[in-house]
């Protein structure tokens, strides 16, 4: 089996064994298998975030001629 085939099959198996709650859509475990917190939200490891640069002001543009 190719690597992509086994990963795809494994992901489907995971979707089957750990279905989201039909009402809330929440999963009981994270993709990595860690339990979700008490509120049911999945706590995932996050990459450290960098401060996003503030967006440059958009020049006002008239789309339609008057």
């Amino acid at each position: 089996m190719s690597r992509i085939a086994s990963r795809l099959a494994q992901s489907v198996r995971q979707a089957k064994n750990d279905p989201p709650d039909p009402r809330t859509g929440r999963k009981a475990t994270t993709p990595a298998g860690e339990p979700a917190d008490a509120a049911g939200s999945v706590v995932t490891r996050q990459a450290p975030t960098r401060e996003a640069p503030s967006p440059a002001p958009m020049p006002a543009r008239r789309v339609w001629p008057d």
């Binding site: 089996m1 190719s2 795809l8 099959a9 489907v12 089957k16």
Partner: peptide, 14 residues
């Protein structure tokens, strides 16, 4: 496509 060819094994999980 590699994904299309990988379908067989994934479908077997259903």
């Amino acid at each position: 496509s590699a994904l299309s060819r990988a379908m067989q094994e994934a479908l077997a999980e259903f």
